[in-house]
Design a protein around this nucleic acid. Structure first.
Lengths: 238, 238
DNA sequence: AAAAACAACTTGTATATACAAGATGAAGCC
DNA sequence: GGCTTCATCTTGTATATACAAGTTGTTTTT
């Protein structure tokens, strides 16, 4: 099968399988079609199919077993990025709500920004918004996000309420988050944060600053997070 | 070039290049030899060389640029696992010291262990030890580690003082850490932890529990960490 | 019935080759 | 000098093929 002009064939296989897994066509623990089956489906060869499966492995959608097959697994929380989990049985998405406190707005980069910015980033202004995540209506995580305003037409007016930022970037702007770094502290909340999270001032808070790089030059996503970990915790898989 | 019996050729290339990077033969920002050069060196083909370079990319030792080459980068702190960093200019290894509080000992798994254990793990006993890491002689991170006692001859009597656990496992036992999960809380230290880290009881502490899987069935590494993030923070790259 | 051998599947490793496409510096042109 | 073109380096994508080795269920042997 010939790849279309825009994207290579192995990526189409990756995207197809990922979409199918996310749609629930393969459940956790099930096997994907064998490499040879996929070769027939996409009319290609094992090297290409294996390149796609290798990508899915890195993303955490599958684990592979010699002689057995590709086993569908719980996808990683996106590249080792810490995500919110419940202490008990996990936070069902029905219990988790997100509200925008500050809708996306264009502004200059703050002068005292918490990560060093390069020239390319400083040439553009930044998009800023804040969100508050609640579990069972109790505020748990407050998040301030900044990203370079590069090639993001219409982003300002999008609804971020209950959609993943990463999913929007991937599906609407063809932007993939590649890698990043995060720094974590345990702090005592100041008045502002404590009020937002509705906790006493002496209560410990988990504070995190992170930078996520994308496949677009100078387009990075920065966020500063504050999490009340009394009832829940941050978790990641890698 | 034929691979030797034990390990495949692509792995030898990976290990060679990794060792050379770690020895400083290639500095950050420099280019590795081109794929075709490596083909000649190891008398193999690009598919195999690319498999090796892809591994180094995943480990964070290099980033690849189309048309340019393989650029040596700061290695990730191992698979997105949080590691200790300084707020100022980074913690030089000369300032970081590790002391063993409880030397490696065999014992049964604790009954109230903080991760669920499978049957295979419960068949073996576990190796337990604790370490305290200091930066400029100030205690910063206390760590309790548990791992299954499987195929680890002589591990009990090894010196862990200033060597990386992962490096010992890789070089002496051919064990690679593959993936894992970690959970993070901000807490107030109890009497015990506060004394170990030499801080006031009301001071927030970063608490982390993590599980690291290896390429050996049923051999997982568990640890429980407590970190004073007043002067330093935990950081990871992914 | 239990054990061994086998067949048929799976993924893992490897060779050989081809062309596309990004990066870079040199040669030639205006 | 400043510009384009070109050659040559690099990595990216892809085909076709082969055998090794792990997994599983069936068949044969004992």
């Amino acid at each position: 099968m010939k790849p279309d002009k825009l994207s290579p064939l192995y990526k189409k296989v990756t995207d197809d399988l990922r979409a199918q897994i996310e749609k629930g066509m393969y459940r956790k623990g099930e096997l994907l079609p064998s490499e040879n089956d996929l070769c027939k489906t996409y009319n290609t060869t094992r090297v290409t199919v294996r390149q796609a499966l290798s990508g899915l492995t890195n993303l955490g959608y599958i684990t592979r077993r010699h002689g057995k097959g590709s086993i569908v697994t719980e996808p990683k929380a996106g590249l080792g990025i810490l995500s919110l989990s419940g202490v008990t049985a996990g936070v069902g998405s029905q219990n988790l709500s997100t509200s925008i406190l500050q809708k996306q707005m264009k502004q200059d980069w703050p002068l005292d920004f918490f990560f060093p910015l390069n020239e390319g980033e400083l040439k553009h202004d930044c998009i800023y918004f804040t969100r508050l995540r609640r579990i069972n209506d109790i505020p748990v995580l407050y998040e301030e996000t900044y990203l370079s305003n590069i090639n993001l037409p219409g982003f300002i007016s999008r609804e971020l309420e209950n959609l993943s930022l990463f999913k929007i970037l991937r599906e609407s702007y063809n932007i993939e988050v590649k890698e990043g770094e995060q720094k974590i502290w345990a702090i005592l909340g100041d008045k502002n944060i404590s009020e937002l999270l509705n906790i006493k001032k002496s209560h410990p808070i988990l504070h995190m600053k992170r930078k996520l790089k994308t496949n677009i030059q100078d387009l990075n996503i920065y966020s500063s997070l504050y999490c009340n970990t009394e009832e829940h915790f941050l978790q990641d898989y890698f």
